[in-house]
Computed example of a mutant assay.
Amino acid sequence: METKKRLGFVSNYLLLIILGSLFALPFLYTIYTSFVTMQDVNKLSGFSNLTFQNYKLFFTNDAYNVPQWLINTVIMTALVILGNLIINPMAAFALAKLDFRGKKIVFWIVLGSMMVPYHMILIPVYVNVAQLGWLNSFAGLTVPFLYQSLYIFMLRQFFVTVPGEFIEAARLDGLTKMGAFWRIVYPLAKSSLITMSILAFAGTWNSYLIPSTLVSDPERYVLVVGLNSVKDAFFENTPLIMAGVVLTTLPILIFFFIFQKQYIEGISSSGVKG
């Protein structure tokens, strides 16, 4: 019986390793290709033939300002994540623990907005941003996205599971409702907040539709939009294109690997109770 368990354990891990390798192959190919010259594409080259020339070209060529695009992306992503870490938990806590008139209606509006594809409201968003004078600005790229209905719902499902006695005990100690939220309830949602941050980071860092619609000034491009313009100019330069793919993908992978444990905990604790 013990032998069967060990064989099952080993076979499961072997299967996971094989599947993981298959899923990793395309990205490994992308990384490899980004370090070779055009002549060595789709060929196996030695380490002596690998080069950083493609990445160097991105950061030194005056035809495209990759360093500025990278800074723009970092600022936009940081502001969006910060806003979501403040606004979404407050809204979720109100829907989970506070009693107010119209609470159910607001909750159903949140659920309903999750079912509307963003493409359907892109034109109204563009019109509003243009009327506010926020085109080609960080305000236009961040303010409309400082909250997300999906994350409000996800956090609300977690806050529902927090015992009300915690809040009542905090109130007895002299804290206000907001004080109880920030000092007691908010820290309990660490895993869910990290899960939300990872999703928000990936969605914002790789966002193309919104920045390409609201920004036309090349100096205000974010990385994905800027690299897409490079792709149009160097479509046949496969190693250069692959270097751009690595630049846009690697930060997300690093962010995920750092917080993967909390991400898994957040997924398992959010949305299972309501």
Rank of each mutant, 00 (worst) to 15 (best):
L214K: 07
M90K: 03
E219K: 01
N136V: 05
P218K: 10
T161C: 09
D99Q: 05
N128G: 07
M154H: 11
D62P: 08
L223K: 04
H119I: 15
M38S: 09
V160D: 11
P89V: 04
G102F: 00
V10I: 14
M115D: 07
Y29N: 09
G133L: 12
R220A: 03
I198F: 05
N228Q: 15
F100D: 04
L141A: 02
F256I: 08
W205T: 03
I121V: 15
N206E: 06
I252Y: 02
K261D: 05
L223H: 00
T176E: 14
I75E: 01
N61E: 14
F257N: 08
E165N: 07
A96F: 11
M178F: 10
P211W: 02
P26K: 14
P117H: 05
F93R: 00
F93C: 01
F59S: 01
A202I: 10
G164R: 08
S149R: 13
T51D: 14
I87T: 07
Y13H: 14
L15D: 02
K5E: 14
L14I: 11
T142W: 01
T51K: 08
F259G: 06
F58N: 04
N72T: 07
S11I: 11
I167S: 08
T249F: 04
V245Y: 06
F58S: 04
I86H: 09
L57H: 14
I87W: 01
